[in-house]
Amino acid sequence: MSIDSIKTMLETLCYYKDVEVTHTFSKDEQPLLKISYVKNTDTLKVAFIQNEAIEYYENVEEAACIIGKRID
């Protein structure tokens, strides 16, 4: 998946910020991470499934780069 496709997906997620939506990204049918919008904060929450780490990003570009690196 290209970085531009990921950015578009994240921008759509931010657009619907009043709705609780979570995207799960997988590789070889194994879920790697989940991303959601944190209401009232303009922040994207990235939850890494394998190590249960959570990171927050206020920038769509930065979040898309992290996701792209993980799923490639």
Rank of each mutant, 00 (worst) to 15 (best):
M1F: 08
S2Y: 06
I3H: 12
I3A: 03
D4N: 14
D4A: 11
S5M: 04
S5A: 08
S5E: 12
S5H: 07
I6S: 09
K7S: 04
T8A: 08
M9P: 00
M9G: 01
M9D: 08
L10T: 04
E11K: 10
T12G: 04
T12N: 09
L13A: 01
Y15Q: 08
Y15A: 07
Y16W: 02
Y16C: 05
Y16L: 07
K17I: 03
K17S: 10
D18V: 00
E20L: 12
E20P: 12
E20D: 14
E20F: 13
V21E: 12
V21N: 11
V21S: 08
T22W: 03
T22P: 02
H23M: 07
H23E: 04
H23I: 09
F25G: 08
F25D: 04
S26P: 00
K27S: 13
K27P: 02
K27V: 06
D28T: 03
D28P: 05
D28E: 14
E29L: 10
E29Q: 13
E29H: 11
Q30C: 01
P31E: 11
P31T: 05
P31A: 14
L32S: 09
L32Y: 07
L33E: 02
K34W: 00
I35R: 01
I35D: 03
I35M: 05
Y37V: 05
Y37L: 02
K39N: 06
K39L: 05
N40H: 12
D42V: 00
T43K: 14
T43F: 03
L44E: 07
K45A: 12
K45W: 08
K45T: 04
V46I: 15
V46W: 09
V46N: 02
Q50E: 11
N51D: 13
N51M: 00
E52I: 01
A53K: 14
I54N: 05
I54Y: 04
I54V: 15
I54E: 13
E55M: 12
Y56N: 13
Y56R: 11
Y57T: 10
N59K: 09
V60L: 03
E61P: 02
E61S: 15
E62L: 13
A63S: 08
A63E: 09
A64D: 05
C65N: 13
I66E: 15
I66G: 02
I66Q: 13
I66W: 07
I67P: 11
I67F: 08
R70A: 13
R70K: 12
R70E: 14
I71G: 10
I71P: 09
I71E: 15
D72R: 15
